[in-house]
């Protein structure tokens, strides 16, 4: 377990639910903190009786949702301007970004829900959804479903492996990016299909 993880676990033990809320919130904004693994560890603390499971779920889910929505609105309001400011005007107006935006627009439900299971993928999808100006109500609904499923999954994992959660904590940290990879493959596959379809349509017309 690295030093940051140890500091985070200490914070959870000392400040409990506000700490969980803060870690989930900050992680949704793109700060690379092990929020999923922390939720699993907190679930182990809850199964030992040190934390309340309901409050743990509430603080984790609310932190995630508020963080996701904040990132979405930041990107929706200032995303393109930010890309122009950091001299990525070409990328902001490029066909690649438009295609990714189209993919998220077309296949938003599976992409948004699946991305909630990995911290970095969550941030990426929040950014793209904001840039693509996805319908906010739909984004909020899908994000909420995804966040609830994510917390239930990791909290369930922590509860089941409560006796040896430290080993599982390491495992989640090590292999969390497998889920990110699956999401990248899924997005790549879907993007290729979308590009091919639009290319065929253009050829026909």
């Amino acid at each position: 377990m690295n030093h940051i993880s140890q500091e985070i676990l200490s914070l959870v033990l000392i400040y409990r639910y506000p700490a969980l809320f803060f870690i989930s919130f900050v992680s949704s904004l793109g700060v690379p903190l092990p929020a999923a693994a922390t939720a699993a560890a907190a679930a182990a603390f809850a199964s030992q009786g040190y934390l309340n499971l309901f409050l743990l779920l509430l603080s984790g889910v609310s932190g995630n949702i508020i963080g996701d929505v904040t990132m979405y609105w930041l990107m929706r309001k200032f995303g393109k301007r930010l890309l122009y400011f950091i001299r990525l005007r070409k990328f902001a107006d490029s066909a690649i970004l438009n295609n990714v935006e189209q993919t998220v627009e077309t296949y938003n439900a599976p992409v948004i829900i699946a991305s909630r299971f990995q911290d970095q993928a969550t941030t990426l999808v929040n950014i793209i959804s904001g840039l693509a100006k996805l319908d906010f109500r739909r984004f909020l609904l899908l994000t909420s479903i995804g966040d609830i499923l994510q917390i239930i999954f990791y909290v369930g994992l922590g509860s089941v492996f409560a006796d040896n959660w430290q080993a599982i904590y390491g495992l989640i940290g090590k292999f969390g990016w497998i889920i990110a990879l699956i999401i990248i493959i899924a997005v790549a596959l879907i993007s290729t299909r979308t590009i091919r379809k639009s290319f065929k349509r253009r050829q026909k017309s």
Partner: peptide, 8 residues
Amino acid sequence: QSWMTFRY
């Protein structure tokens, strides 16, 4: 572990 609190 060293990161655990006395209360815990």
